[in-house]
């Protein structure tokens, strides 16, 4: 009897220790990634990276100014497509939804969310690049915008649903129409959550590479307007990392460092804001 108990206690201790080890490994990987990127990306990062164009093969120096601007433009377009559709669709689901159609919308949203990013790239290619017969910033923005829709819809819906029904009733009991109540009370109450949701969403697509490969393509020079191919940070990291030049590898690390810093900064700020907002809401 005693021996059994000792065995059980030993199993208990060993297994619990092992689960702790698993958690440690998972977090250790993260710490390693961040540490390594800071180490090798931060050390080769300089001011030229932000201000200069890429140099031709063989010449050292240069930067990725065009890719930074290109990424910003593509993300701007993506938000213009993904945020309004997702937000308004979310308002529909949370506030107006009936029975059958919302089910269809949710189902389709989940479907779209599960589509691999490379397939989204093909879709944007057939939709815009094929008819126009050239790669463009527009196509890249379209691809990322499509990727933003499902998440912005679901997070908007979620945060609107978290607003108590009594808010809507309170406003309507004062003579506000349904829409008036939504615009003046419900959406403002959920605003912080919705905005952080959008920020997280943006950070997520900012690192997407696959959908850009054959939509915005790449460009060694500035890309004026919206109709030409453009360089973006993630695609630059990809091309520079698999190229056989030492100097390009260094640049890829710098770009990775910049991209990851941005993504992490947004994530940390947004998640802190969310957890603080959670305390305020009753």
């Amino acid at each position: 009897m005693d021996r059994l108990l000792i065995r059980r206690k030993a199993v208990n201790a060993v297994m619990l220790g092992l689960t702790g080890l698993c958690a440690l490994i998972a977090v250790g990987v993260l710490v390693f990634i961040v540490g390594y990127l800071f180490y090798s990306g931060g050390s080769s990062l300089n001011w030229n990276f932000f201000t200069k164009l890429p140099t031709p093969v063989g010449e050292s120096g240069g930067g990725m100014a065009n890719a930074i601007l290109g990424s910003a433009k593509v993300l701007l377009l993506a938000s213009l497509i993904g945020v309004p559709i997702g937000f308004l669709g979310g308002v529909y689901l949370a506030e107006f939804g009936g029975t059958t159609f919302p089910f269809v919308v949710r189902y389709m949203t989940d479907l779209l969310n599960g589509v691999p990013s490379i397939v989204i790239g093909i879709f944007a290619f057939t939709l815009i690049v094929l008819p126009q017969k050239h790669f463009s910033t527009l196509a890249g923005g379209m691809a990322l915008g499509l990727m933003m829709i499902p998440i912005s819809l679901r997070s908007t819906e979620e945060f609107l649903r978290a607003v108590p029904v009594s808010m809507r009733e309170g406003a309507m009991a004062l003579g506000a129409t349904k829409t008036r109540a939504i615009v003046t009370v419900v959406v403002p109450a959920a605003m912080q959550g919705i905005v952080t949701g959008i920020m997280l969403n943006l950070a997520r697509v900012a690192g997407e590479t696959a959908p850009l490969l054959f939509t915005s393509f790449g460009n060694r020079f500035w890309s004026p307007g919206w109709g030409q191919p453009t360089a973006t940070l993630p695609v630059m990291i990809f091309t520079y990392a698999i190229a056989p030049y030492e100097d390009w590898h260094r640049q890829a690390w710098s770009a990775g460092f910049v991209l990851l810093s941005l993504v992490f900064a947004v994530n940390v700020i947004a998640r802190l804001a969310l957890s603080r907002g959670g305390h305020q809401r009753r």
Binding site: E169, G170, A173, P188, A189
Partner: peptide
């Protein structure tokens, strides 16, 4: 006008 069971001031 109406006042509800749980107070529901707007944020």
């Amino acid at each position: 006008g109406m006042v509800f069971q749980r107070s529901n001031p707007f944020p």
